[in-house]
């Protein structure tokens, strides 16, 4: 900006042309940088599709893991992932929503509340493998759940706890205060205000946040390795105490084998995992759209 700008109507000076040229180059660079990210996504998907599509068939879903790549499938892993998904939702959802309601609607605005809030923000940044160590020491060893589904589900529940709490708090905060005041004005108690006014209005936002957090849990590998999920299981789990595997772990198990055939089945497994995640995200988007229409 140091140069003299051309007076209105005059011919642009060399300096002006240079500044405009810089501007164009910069704009193109920024656009290109954005495209690099998008391109990486496209290449990644193309890579997985190219390797995995030939093996992406019905037999993949109905076969168990096998030493022979041509017979290997994701049945046990898919069942394990669905078990984990259901149980994690069951454990994490009520506690997280209750915590969010407490923080937004009940908690006094004091130092302790700020501390809890800060703690939740920091928990959200703890690497997932550290949660695995907590799960290993507490659920697997101390509580004696051993290498079971329930140990895995509890570990992932505490992993996504902060994520759901933060999303639910935002949803609760977005409910206009006038609604609360109107309900209080009619003599409602705090819980009546929350349960009959605030929660129903915040629920779509809470559910969207929960589904997105759960899709993170479904994609997690490291914490489940810590709590002892294994890569080779030839049965579907029947109860909370059963050993289990999940899709990402099965995929990791296949990736770490040197044979090219297992790389292909790993790619096919990735396609199953991505399909599951896409279905969950589609559900979240549908919820969000419905919510926006209602407003």
């Amino acid at each position: 900006m140091s140069g003299s700008a051309s007076p209105l109507g005059g011919t642009p000076s060399a300096n002006d042309r240079r500044r405009r040229l810089f501007g164009s180059i910069f704009a193109i660079t920024c656009g290109a940088a954005t495209l690099v990210g998008v391109l990486a996504l496209v290449v990644l998907l193309a890579d997985v599709l190219r390797d995995g599509l030939p093996r992406f068939d019905w037999a993949l879903l109905t076969n168990f893991a096998s030493r022979f790549p041509e017979r290997a499938g994701v049945k046990a892993a898919l069942a394990g992932s669905i078990w984990i998904l259901g149980l994690t939702a069951l454990f994490a959802f009520p506690v997280s929503v209750a915590a969010a309601i407490y923080l937004e609607e009940y908690a006094p605005r004091n130092r302790w509340t700020r501390l809890i809030q800060l703690n939740i923000a920091n928990l959200a940044g703890v690497p997932s493998i550290v949660y695995g160590m907590l799960g290993l020491a507490v659920f697997v060893r101390a509580l004696g759940f051993d290498r079971s589904i329930i140990a895995g589900a509890l570990t992932l529940s505490i992993l996504i706890l902060p994520v759901i709490i933060i999303a639910s708090q935002e949803a609760v905060r977005a409910v206009p205060d006038s609604i609360r005041q109107a309900a209080y004005g009619l003599g409602a108690t705090r819980w009546q205000v929350v349960s009959s006014q605030v929660l129903p209005m915040a629920m779509p936002g809470i559910l969207t946040g929960t589904i997105l957090a759960l899709s993170r849990a479904v994609g997690e590998t490291a914490p489940l390795i810590m709590v002892g999920a294994v890569g080779f299981i030839a049965f579907t789990p029947t109860g909370l105490g059963d050993p289990f595997t999940v899709l990402p772990l099965q995929i990791y198990n296949w990736i770490s084998r040197p044979q090219a055939d297992f790389q292909q089945i790993a790619a096919a497994g990735i396609l199953v995992l991505l399909s599951l995640l896409m279905a969950m995200n589609a559900a979240a988007i549908l919820l969000r759209n419905r919510y926006q229409k209602d407003r």
């Binding site: 809890i116 706890l161 902060p162």
Partner: peptide, 30 residues
């Protein structure tokens, strides 16, 4: 009604306390 309110309030508080417990657990175990 007040008793019910208080029970619910305590339950909500305990849920929020779980997150603190998780941090304490992580630090204690490590």
């Amino acid at each position: 009604r007040n008793v019910k309110e208080q029970v619910i309030g305590s339950f909500l508080f305990l849920s929020a306390a779980v997150s603190t417990l998780v941090t304490v657990g992580i630090v204690a175990v490590l």
